[in-house]
């Protein structure tokens, strides 16, 4: 069985973008047998995390298939670019969190697939903070945290084991 690794590189210093800005990057798959790759899907999407069930929407989607007779060597850099939308902005709330990411899903022969993500921030909304229960509203107003948003670098590491929908993500042998 092949060893594989997908590398994603986003253009930009801190993986933080503003609405309307162009998100561009590249990826490549390190694999011994590139013919084993049936298709690769590139998605730029947001998903929620927190107490509620997950919501997700895809902003950009591209499927590069090797099944139509045209072989694309995924070991070579593949570029992608898309203009980011106005919303929803990345948000780190108390029970609702919104994350943006570039997700690369590689489909191998024999029906296996694996996922790699690169998280980035859209906008700079500060972290949400719960209003203290029983706070007197006639006094100091309760406000969202005024500090700088959490650095996207904290969670910008590509994750090869993240399969939010429960699909199988096989590890390399």
């Amino acid at each position: 069985m092949n060893d594989w690794k997908t590398s994603i590189r986003l253009i930009g210093d801190d993986h933080s973008y503003q609405p309307g800005e162009m998100l561009s990057g590249e990826f490549f798959v390190q694999i011994d047998e590139p013919q084993d790759i049936r298709a690769v899907e590139v998605s730029v999407l947001w998903f929620t995390e927190g107490k509620g069930d997950e919501d997700m929407a895809v902003h950009y989607f591209e499927r590069i298939s090797n099944e139509n007779g045209q072989f694309v060597d995924m070991r070579k850099s593949q570029q992608f670019a898309t203009e980011l939308p106005e919303s929803p902005l990345s948000y780190d709330g108390v029970i609702v969190k919104i994350h943006w990411c570039v997700r690369i899903r590689v489909f191998l022969s024999r029906g296996r697939d694996f996922v790699t993500e690169q998280v980035f921030r859209l906008g700079n909304v500060p972290r949400g903070r719960a209003v203290v229960e029983g706070a007197d509203l006639d006094s100091e107003p309760e406000a969202l945290e005024q500090s700088a948003p959490a650095s996207p670098a904290d969670d910008a590491t590509p994750r090869s084991d993240a399969v939010p929908d429960g699909d199988a993500a096989d590890s390399p042998a």
């Binding site: 929620t48 919501d55 919303s87 709330g93 609702v96 969202l144 005024q146």
Partner: peptide
């Protein structure tokens, strides 16, 4: 510093 309104299927 306020977050904008948001409406998902399960989160808002």
């Amino acid at each position: 510093s306020g977050m904008h309104s948001f409406q998902g299927l399960n989160n808002s």
